[in-house]
Design a protein around this nucleic acid. Sequence first.
DNA 1: AGCTTAGAGTTCACTAGTTGGACATAGTCG
DNA 2: CGACTATGTCCAACTAGTGAACTCTAAGCT
Lengths: 399, 399
Amino acid sequence: METPGSQSSLHRANLERVVRAVRLAGSLTQAEIARTTGLSAATVSNIVRELKDGGTVEVTPTSAGGRRARSVSLSGDAGIVIGVDFGHTHLRVAVGNLAHQVLAEESEPLDVDASSTQGFDRAEELVNRLISATGVDRSKIAGVGLGVPGPIDVESGTLGSTAILPGWTGTRPAEELRGRLGVPVHVDNDANLGALGELVWGSGRGVRDLAYIKVASGVGAGLVINGKIYRGPGGTAGEIGHITLDESGPVCRCGNRGCLETFAAARYVLPLLQSSHGTDLTMEGVVRLARDGDPGCRRVIADVGRHIGSGVANLCNLLNPSRVVLGGDLAEAGELVLGPIRESVGRYAIPSAARQLSVLPGALGGRAEVLGALALALSEMGDSTLLDGTLTAATPAFT
Amino acid sequence: METPGSQSSLHRANLERVVRAVRLAGSLTQAEIARTTGLSAATVSNIVRELKDGGTVEVTPTSAGGRRARSVSLSGDAGIVIGVDFGHTHLRVAVGNLAHQVLAEESEPLDVDASSTQGFDRAEELVNRLISATGVDRSKIAGVGLGVPGPIDVESGTLGSTAILPGWTGTRPAEELRGRLGVPVHVDNDANLGALGELVWGSGRGVRDLAYIKVASGVGAGLVINGKIYRGPGGTAGEIGHITLDESGPVCRCGNRGCLETFAAARYVLPLLQSSHGTDLTMEGVVRLARDGDPGCRRVIADVGRHIGSGVANLCNLLNPSRVVLGGDLAEAGELVLGPIRESVGRYAIPSAARQLSVLPGALGGRAEVLGALALALSEMGDSTLLDGTLTAATPAFT
DNA sequence: AGCTTAGAGTTCACTAGTTGGACATAGTCG
DNA sequence: CGACTATGTCCAACTAGTGAACTCTAAGCT
């Protein structure tokens, strides 16, 4: 059973192969499964029977040219996964099934000053609400992915000290949620999950190497290398916000000077506009004004873009990803920010690396992180098909 | 046979499992193989017989507590691999066997202005000489790894335009060598191979994420991520030499200003010392003088270190590798350059990323690239054990 | 309508391959 | 010298995949 190298392990691998093929195609007849997996028709016949008996798969008759074929598809209620994303101002939950379909999704505001207990209470509540809304049995939950807006040690599950949500430092969100929901919970930080979300279902589809750059109150990046989230041995990879652009630039909250963040993050950029545009401006507001033509806001956004571009150029020289996806509030600015980024990359990156780079806005907007959390849950439960990801049917959001 | 998911594929996997176990341990009895692989004793018995008949493995009696055990080890002449490294001033060849032992190694000077044909002639000659010196049959060559000092498109095998060896641009070295030796040849650039060499047999042992930085006439890096060389989709990853340190710095050969290379590479640094130390100074000479106490040279090396450190800090923030290995001539300077690098990293990298980084000099010196080429040949022939690398016995170099 | 055809799925006997258990082997220890 | 013990081998049982023969069923043709 447990021994690798035995027939039963081979059998298991073949089961997975079939499930994978079915999931990728949505639905397949047995003959098609045999062709795509390379297994013989007889084997497929056995495996499909086994999967059907186990409830993982549904079989419906189809008409074809010859004998009535049986269309095999993943049964919708074989299991569900849940994605939970804590932002600094919101809480977002999505429920999906094993066929990579989003069944329900909802978000609600979250008070920055809320205690972690309150936060988890709200999350638990929302999860329960969505589950009952979809009418799926609770026992079908296969796993939960959880995103938190701060550095988290994935091994120990402990939230780092610079968390954006004050008072959450040192908590262990995954354990907390597992305690409440009674199912395995996997955490990661929001930038990594955003990267995963865009990779599987957004602007990163079809690519194996991607950097997701999220500009909000800070600047962070999630890296996908060879189709997998890359966290680095210490879990701190992707800190693009703190690469040095100007050794004698402004002092950053990290203690250094001239970090990218000091030229691009909301907390440093918004003050530039306060004297002319008032003090309670948000990044969202700046983007809106810029789109409406406000020259000051346009200038600020262009400058931010240029600086991000310098950072991306460094990233590009070092890693040579094929795609950079811009997320966060700033992505809404579209070409106003992407243009300067591309220009800067073109100037500072070596040509051969820049040539194959495409810089795109995220396709999922604020949903990237929850969907990434879903993807995390799927991948942690052994779903190896995510890379070829197809989010077959995004369902009407509830709220 | 070819179908994945069949019993024969399982058998093949089990064969590999056994070979792997034996290689890692050097030699094992069948009972030990059974324990480490998790296969049953009966299976191991069959597999060992098969391997012995095939000549991959040798069996010698050992005394033990009970029945006389049979010690299984890879037969030395099961196959050999060859590493070839073209430097800008030298040609280096190594011959190794499948048990990860270096059987012979030799290097000779290579004229920078030599035509590519001359170069390949010399390489062929040297390979033949080493093979006959080791007395192994030519038919046992399982593969060749080839290193070239310039950007090479690993897919097409074509050498890029900025090659350091003039006149080699556009040649396809792997094909050239395959034509002469009649065996599969795999190319990569020297930085990547250096990284691989140090990873498997040098300062990178036991680590999964490493950056090998080679400072010579230019500055390049080879990246190992998750135990594999990372080339990036375009094959240009690791261009640390051209990340921007100072937007208004000196003009670099790449067309930008203030690239790391302009502060660290021999071609830019040596001129600084020409007025005081004469015009035919080499990097090697500078290092020697610095070690002897020459203050000017010390200062220059320290400055170079500081700048490299800035680059490494960026690398560290983005990738968070657990180890950075310094190679090339400059590495000989030891603490004179490593100290400033570490200091700079400490200053410019975010603390959590810098904390787990160790910056080490390469352990293999100029051999890193050839040994990396050996490792490349081994890995390309399906040797998946390299990560746990053990260079069991380095043999007396010939020359 | 009846016949043919062709693709789909199933059954079955066969084969490859692993495994547990029985067994032979050969050394040490008392 | 006998008991003990760990090793390797053999064999029968078992697991799982496969080709070939077979059954089904819809569509196309006469």
